[in-house]
């Protein structure tokens, strides 16, 4: 009886999600097998689009670049986020909520605002270059700062660091200090304690935070576009072009689905890693 009521209550939400989220994706999936015939779409299913992606060095390169960027930013945010999360969970004390709020404040401002703030900092006439020239470190502004992969990755790291910190912070909150004392008691010195206790026990947080950052970096369109200059072309902007000016919906859909499939594979791997790490399973 209660099961039926539950099903009934869940039905609208399920229908809503199916209609507005899953259905468009399925339509795109269907499109990815069609072809463009001059200006009309020819409904003649084939794997031609996927073959094209696999055969094109440009698309392969763009996809690889997106995932490479994702991995790089995950690595950087993990290295920065680890000590920050540790401090928040274990040392911040009464300051904890204030610091957590501070961490989230940048997220409240819009994407564009943050991007333009980085332009002000990194530009040829920007704060950093002006300061360096004033200090006599350099005579002419450093050109590589803005409109470069460096600028893109600095901004991406800045944008998505909070998500990594939140994931790790939660993991550190449930890390009992007694485990570290027990490890020390049994003879483990600091590096060994980190490798054998802290790291494995905060690993689920690292995976959760890492997946969030990864997905958002891979899907970020604005930041590379506005800060990357010539390097700003991404697989997302390519998809955008295919759906827009190039009017090749089928190829665009195929690239989108290739990305989605790879991301889902990463998610499955992450879920498996978390499940294996004891903190969730086997109670």
């Amino acid at each position: 009886m209660s099961l039926r009521v539950g099903t009934l209550l869940a039905a609208p939400v399920t229908a809503f999600l199916l209609a507005l989220c899953v259905a468009p994706l399925l339509i795109l999936f269907a499109y990815s097998f069609f072809r463009v015939d001059f200006v009309a779409i020819s409904y003649d299913p084939s794997f031609a689009n996927y073959a094209k992606i696999a055969g094109s060095a440009t698309y392969r390169g763009l996809i690889l670049k997106a995932f490479g960027s994702g991995a790089l930013v995950v690595a950087i945010t993990a290295v920065i986020g680890y000590p920050v999360a540790w401090f928040l969970a274990k040392r911040a004390g009464a300051m904890k909520s204030a610091l957590l709020t501070l961490l989230l404040v940048p997220l409240y401002s819009g994407d564009l605002v943050r991007v333009f703030a980085w332009r002000v900092l990194l530009g040829a006439e920007g704060v950093i270059n002006r300061s360096l020239i004033w200090a006599g470190v350099t005579d002419a502004p450093i050109q590589g700062l803005l409109f470069s992969p460096l600028a893109t990755h600095i901004a991406l790291t800045y944008n998505y660091l909070p998500f990594m910190v939140i994931g790790l912070w939660l993991a550190f909150e449930s890390l009992d200090d007694a485990w570290l004392e027990a490890a020390a008691d049994l003879g483990a010195r600091s590096p060994s304690r980190f490798a054998r206790v802290t790291l494995p026990l905060t690993f689920p947080g690292l995976v959760a935070g890492g997946l969030m950052v990864f997905v958002m970096v891979v899907g970020d369109y604005l930041t590379p576009q506005l800060l990357g200059g010539a390097s700003g072309i991404t697989v997302i902007s390519a998809i955008n072009d295919l759906f827009g000016t190039a009017f090749d919906w089928p190829l665009g859909s195929a690239i989108a689905w290739t990305m989605l499939a790879i991301l889902m594979a990463f998610f499955a791997m992450g879920a498996m890693l978390i499940r294996r790490s004891s903190l969730v399973g086997g109670s």
Partner: peptide
């Protein structure tokens, strides 16, 4: 230890 502090992983 009072809480035993066994490593859960």
């Amino acid at each position: 230890f009072q809480s035993y502090a066994l490593f859960p992983h």
